[in-house]
Amino acid sequence: MTGIAGQKSALSWVVNITVLALVVLWLIPTIGLLVSSFRDRDAISASAWWTAPLSVEQNFRVRAPAAETRAIDGGFETAIGGYEITGNIADLIAAETGQTGPVTITAFGATARAPVAAQPGEVLPLSRDRTLSITADGDYRFFAPAEITRDPSLYFAMEIPPSFDLDNYREILRSDGMDIAFINTLTVTIPATVIPILIAAFAAYALAWMDFRGRGVLIAVVVGLLVVPLQLALVPMLSFHNTIGIGQSFLGIWLAHTGFGLPLAIYLLRNYMVGLPRDIIESARVDGATDFQVFTKIILPLSFPALASFAIFQFLWVWNDLLVAKVFLPASSESWVMTVKIADDLLGSRGGDWGILAAAAFTSIAVPLLVFFTLQRYLVRGLLAGSVK
């Protein structure tokens, strides 16, 4: 039987499974981004993030130094002797890249077309009676019957153990000017969050509780502005700012973010305020309270969940904004916010450096996460504003 008080509906399982699926779908790319932020560029290119805890196999090429050629009287390859180069792959890697440590060779070769033609320990025959042998621990021997005048190329596959470090975060945090970019971001974000809240609170109260001609038209205009792309207003607004003398300045970007955020703020706050108990407001007016006193003493304290909800959205949007900051702030590095600093300075032409991108993403969301978790208890109440009475 269904519909009995105290008994769960069969649809509750569907809701729970749907919520769980959405959470998993949201967490998977976030975890992948977090794992990638601790890996270097080569590791990210070589393997997927979910294989990061496992050893991966990568192909490499190094050159054996011909200057170390040693003449031999005879050997396994030929009885008339020849020339050989011996050494260890780890020493060649350290000389070329500066990376030290033991190596584990899984296959090797002598040409780019066949980089893994032989197994460790085998003797690989080459052209002109030359041979190459590489052991699993990296010891190599290149033999030629004639004198070796050029550095021969050694191709091999090597197991790379999992490696995680903080190099990406160090590069971001130690970058010159990052502290100034952080302060600039706060300078832009805090006023651009507070100003639209103040203006929208007054407008929402007027649209919710004050009777005047054209109120319905204004509400319709506010709803219509929600669907207008901000990209359409960038050039006209910048031209207007340049005309009045505030173009590409902090004041200009504050007003730009205020204009872009006001429609949502007014809509959200008005829906919440219109659902507040009418008896409280009418009783205050009977006692002689003015509209301003009703607004400051009653409406604002009761509307804090809606105010906090919009503050979260506005703060996150302004903090993570790149487009508006590129348009309305000066191009000099002294005025860069964090998004512009990361995009123009740290990345530059290295747009494919996913390790830097991932670390930059987690570095830039630290403050928004703090704001979100501080105010998230008010988020649902604010979003449900006006849905029931």
Rank of each mutant, 00 (worst) to 15 (best):
S12C: 05
L22Y: 07
V23I: 15
P29C: 06
P29Q: 09
T30Q: 13
F38W: 15
A52E: 02
P53Q: 07
N59I: 11
R63K: 14
P65R: 15
P65N: 11
A71Y: 03
T78V: 00
I80A: 00
E84M: 01
T86D: 04
L92Y: 04
A94R: 15
A95E: 12
Q99K: 12
Q99G: 00
V103Y: 08
T106Y: 03
F108K: 07
R113A: 15
P120C: 07
R130N: 03
I134C: 08
E147I: 03
I148Q: 01
T149W: 01
Y155V: 02
M158W: 11
S163L: 09
S163E: 09
D176K: 15
G177M: 00
M178N: 06
A181I: 02
T193H: 05
T193A: 01
F202D: 02
L207P: 00
A220Y: 11
V223S: 06
G224D: 03
V228P: 04
Q231K: 10
N242L: 04
S249A: 03
G252W: 12
A256E: 01
H257W: 15
A265T: 13
N271S: 11
M273W: 11
V274P: 03
R278H: 07
E282R: 14
S283W: 12
S283F: 09
T290F: 00
D291Q: 14
F295P: 05
I299G: 08
I299C: 11
L302I: 07
Q314P: 08
D321N: 12
L323T: 13
K326S: 06
P330C: 06
P330Y: 12
S332F: 06
W336K: 12
M338D: 03
K341C: 00
A343W: 03
D344Y: 10
G348Y: 12
W354S: 02
A360G: 15
F362A: 00
I365Q: 06
L375H: 09
L375W: 08
Y378A: 01
V380D: 02
G382R: 13
L384F: 11
A385P: 15
G386F: 12
V388E: 09
